[in-house]
Design a protein around this nucleic acid. Structure first.
Lengths: 192, 192
DNA sequence: AACTTAATTGAATGATCATTCAAGTAGTTT
DNA sequence: AAACTACTTGAATGATCATTCAATTAAGTT
């Protein structure tokens, strides 16, 4: 036996960045060897092919984002304040104009989601998990009487997801705090 | 002299559809000869190159959508009802699960907007024109006391744009009328 | 009717692509 | 220490890519 020499997480984060900057189709295996530090043969040995590398990178992205999400929400702070911080984070990512900080799930969904069943399925599952996590935060907020309890948690969570997707897209054309922050605030206020 | 034999609009609509289905990078010139009915040489003669064809297709998309927009709003109907019809149209396009009915502006922006200045500029200009058109509808609605006049028209229009972007993305994962219609309604209600 | 000019045609071109593979390397097991 | 197994290496492969171009066709002009 012999173990892989590379750090799988770092390799996947490199691939992630490459896909985020150039998009899936435009990112060549040559780009990926640079971004990952791996030779072509090693990539094929570890991830089967280019699509396998994308799938693994998407999973890594989801893991990283989930950890970030938990660190923001798995505490005893006011859930509404946590949510506010979360939205402000997203606004800041938009303002950075750094492709590397975009959402790989929606980016890949838009480019290849309709074309490939495997990719589509993985992204759907990850986005669904994300929605469930938001629902849990909203339920916590409801138990503390912080938000409107008339509307279904599911619809509220879906509305927030929709808003985040939209905010990120809108941020591409208006990377401007005075524009994005009010939109994020308005989105949050829709919960009250 | 000799005029082009092809119908420029139909050629561009064919290219549009190809780009919407496969994405820009994945659409080959071979795909485009099939989609447009033109031979490679004719495409290069008329549009310079593949990127030129995308730029022309984006312009055609914007023209077509603008005409659709005007036919919906350039009348004496209740502007809020027009807006409601407009949103319902978008929901129906999401439900169709037809890549051909997606938004070429946001799709191209997501895939190549960050990579190419020319494409980015054209899309930004078209999206800005779109936002201005929505602002005019909102001003008309305000003059009839149909929506909230406290909030700035610009912010309201931006919020709707953001919502439409988000709705279209969310529609990819939930092509379901019972899900999308309430989100569209909630978006419109934010104007009141 | 002859000339001019531009569009059309489709095969050819060279670049780049994802992928393969045989040789080399180094841990692990016996 | 010998054998085994799996990872690494990077050049080679064949396919596909965007683009070019010389020949052909036909409309507009004189």
């Amino acid at each position: 036996m012999r173990n892989a020499e590379f750090d799988r997480q770092e390799v996947l984060r490199g691939a992630m960045r490459a896909f985020l900057v150039k998009g899936y189709a435009k990112t060549s295996m040559q780009d990926l060897t640079k971004a990952t530090g791996l030779h072509p043969g090693s990539i094929y040995c570890a991830f089967e092919n280019k699509k396998g590398l994308l799938l693994a990178a998407i999973s890594q992205y989801h893991d990283d984002r989930s950890r970030q999400f938990e660190s923001l929400f798995n505490n005893d702070n006011n859930p509404l304040e946590n949510l506010k911080r979360y939205f402000n984070n997203i606004v800041q990512e938009c303002l950075s104009c750094d492709a590397t900080q975009a959402c790989l799930l929606t980016k890949a969904l838009s480019e290849v989601g309709e074309q490939d069943e495997d990719i589509s399925q993985l992204i759907h599952a990850n986005l669904f998990a994300w929605q469930t996590a938001i629902e849990q935060v909203l339920d916590k907020a409801k138990s503390l009487d912080l938000i409107n309890k008339q509307e279904s948690t599911q619809t509220q969570a879906q509305y927030l997801m929709m808003g985040i997707y939209g905010l990120r897209t809108f941020g591409h054309t208006h990377p401007n705090e005075e524009v994005l922050q009010p939109l994020a605030d308005k989105l949050l206020n829709s919960l009250l």
